[in-house]
């Protein structure tokens, strides 16, 4: 018996899930998706759904119970990006590059929470983001934490990304520790190298200790999501390919 379910009020009938399901376990009925009996809960569809209309009944019960859930439930990489109509900020391009490589290594989608205009969203897609959750910047002088904390927290909880990356900047320092605390997980201090263990999907980061006198390799074991800040000038940017395809959705 599968636990994957469709929230029909949220389903827009885009048929993305039907397309992504390799078992043909989703059918359209009256413009809404319906999960069929032979669904194996592989979660491909709810990682794909941009409307938050698919969820696992089992997983939401587990999240309510606290942090004791399986790392298996967490898939995908999310990066925090900033930009304007001329494109992404340099630090954001580097974080995107770091995220793209990890997503390729893990065989998952790279998604982005982008604060900025449509030019930046197109830049993000051309540089390798599969799905951009775009939103306009909050009014200046509002606290970053108050403006972006709960929408970002909602997105991470709903999609259950296994890795979330931020650039090493003031907005990240304002947001990432708060998210890590609410998600009961660790936050990697700025890393200059990132690798994943293919079996455990654990993130191994290299951090600079005592102002760079020493380097330490750190990991957080079973914690999900694995949230890390990315050092500047450590990850070469991916090149922009305007023909690359990706999805841009409006985020809260």
């Amino acid at each position: 018996m599968h636990v994957t379910q469709i929230i029909s009020e949220k389903c827009t009938g885009c048929e993305d899930c039907v397309f992504v399901c390799t078992l043909k376990a989703i059918r359209m009925e009256g413009g809404k998706a319906v999960i069929l009996e032979h669904c194996t809960d592989c979660k491909d569809c709810w990682k794909r759904c941009g409307d938050g209309a698919i969820y696992s009944g089992e997983t939401s019960a587990a999240s309510a119970a606290g942090p004791q859930q399986s790392t298996e439930d967490w898939r995908g990489v999310l990066v925090w990006l900033e930009g304007d109509d001329s494109g992404l900020q340099p630090a954001s391009r580097e974080v995107l590059a770091a995220g793209r490589r990890l997503a390729d290594d893990l065989g998952v989608y790279l998604e982005a929470y982008l604060v900025g205009g449509s030019g930046a969203a197109r830049d993000a897609v051309s540089r390798g983001v599969d799905r951009v959750h775009q939103r306009a910047p909050a009014a200046p002088h509002t606290g970053l934490a108050s403006a972006y904390e709960s929408p970002l927290l909602g997105l991470i909880r709903q999609r259950q990304f296994e890795i979330v990356l931020f650039p090493d900047s003031l907005p990240s320092w304002e947001l990432a520790p708060r998210l890590a605390q609410r998600l009961q997980t660790a936050l990697y201090p700025p890393v200059s190298a990132l690798t994943v263990d293919f079996e455990t999907r654990e993130l191994l980061g290299t951090i600079h200790a005592y102002g760079g006198t020493y380097f330490s390799e750190v990991t957080t074991g079973g914690a999900r999501p694995q949230i890390a800040l990315v050092r500047g000038n450590a990850f070469p940017e991916t090149s922009a390919d305007p023909s690359r395809e990706g999805e841009i959705v409006q985020a809260a």
Partner: peptide
């Protein structure tokens, strides 16, 4: 602090206490 230069505990505590914050 000098070890990792991290400084994440402040914002974590602010989240725990539901306080607004200003860093640096």
């Amino acid at each position: 602090s000098p070890a990792w230069g991290a400084g994440q505990t402040g914002a974590r505590i602010a989240a725990e206490l539901e306080l607004p914050q200003a860093l640096w």
